[in-house]
């Protein structure tokens, strides 16, 4: 058989298997407009209770403990980093969809987040790759003090998107992707 013809058949088959691969590689490096997040006492409390954190200062009455003396649990940062991903997933230029899992997460802290912090959170796409029927999308969120611009932390989220938003059978591709949404 003509090797050229065989290659053509293979590439057609590959396209047929992966109709949903759609991430736009030109979006690599794109930064989205910053979002401002204010750290409130009630949101810190809710987060602490939801993750089993026991901190008497967070449970104390507002008249007893000033907001600025509260320190957030480290992963509270998810609320204004991972929490911004819907803007990225919804970006029509990127071509992402919600059939995805959360594959890895990193936080690097310059300092702990405190009650009353006003934070400027800027998401940027740092990875767009494809491997077989899976695509990896990494979004870095840089978090600074809104007033001074002093750095607070950087979050980095890697998502794995599977090939189609509706037709996939349960369990398919999960062995390779890992991850948990």
């Amino acid at each position: 058989m003509d090797p050229g013809a065989a290659a053509t058949v293979t590439s057609v088959a590959a396209r047929t298997r992966s109709p949903g691969i759609a991430l736009n590689p030109d979006r690599l490096g794109h930064a989205y407009p910053p979002v401002t997040y204010e750290v409130s006492r009630e949101k810190l409390r809710e987060y602490a209770r939801a993750t089993g954190v026991v901190d008497p200062a967070l449970e104390a009455d507002a008249a007893e403990v000033p907001l600025a003396s509260l320190t957030a649990p480290p992963t509270f940062a998810a609320t204004f980093t991972v929490g911004l991903l819907d803007r990225v997933i919804g970006d029509p230029e990127l071509g992402a969809h919600w059939n995805l899992v959360h594959s890895s997460q990193r936080f690097r802290f310059t300092r702990a987040v405190r009650g009353g912090d006003v934070l400027r959170c800027t998401p940027r796409i740092t990875e767009v790759t494809s491997r077989r029927a899976l695509e990896r999308l990494t979004v870095e969120v840089t978090v600074d003090e809104a007033g001074s611009g002093e750095p607070v932390l950087v979050g980095e989220t890697t998502l794995v998107l599977r090939e189609d938003a509706t037709s996939q059978a349960p369990g398919e591709a999960s062995g390779e992707a890992g991850g948990q949404g």
């Binding site: 899992v101 594959s103 890895s104 997460q105 990193r106 936080f107 802290f109 300092r111």
Partner: peptide, 14 residues
């Protein structure tokens, strides 16, 4: 919390 400088997690099994 102020002692924690970095967290780096890989989510594998659901």
């Amino acid at each position: 919390p102020e002692r924690v400088r970095e967290l780096d997690a890989v989510f594998r099994a659901p």
